[in-house]
């Protein structure tokens, strides 16, 4: 058993997800299966092997420091669930 219910509850909190008990159970089971399977990785000898963060090595890609004004800001707000004073409105942050 690699993954238990508590772990999944913690992961849910970190990733802003909320589950009922059945979901918790189901995800615990499937994650456990997956990580049991992934154990095979531990057998691979990776001593002194550089990790690859990218498929292909590229480096030093930059943009010029110039201002280009975006013309469709209003369009961005058309997708917003709640807007006030040209800002994105969210419910109260702290509750106590």
């Amino acid at each position: 058993m690699t993954i238990n219910k508590k772990t999944v509850e913690h992961l849910a909190k970190l990733s802003r997800l909320r589950f009922n008990d059945n979901e918790l159970l189901a995800f615990t089971k499937s994650l456990d299966d997956i990580f049991e399977y992934a154990k095979s990785l531990q057998q691979v000898n990776t001593e002194g092997i550089e990790p690859s963060a990218h498929a292909i090595p590229l480096q030093n890609v930059f943009k010029k420091d110039e201002i280009i004004t975006y013309k469709n800001i209003d369009k961005l707000f058309e997708n917003a669930p709640d807007v006030e004073n040209h800002s994105f409105k969210v419910p109260r942050i702290l509750t106590n």
Binding site: L41, Q42, V44, T46, I49, E50, P51, S52
Partner: peptide
Amino acid sequence: YYKKAQQVRTI
């Protein structure tokens, strides 16, 4: 997990 997988990716 993550770092290990990245190393295997290199291999």
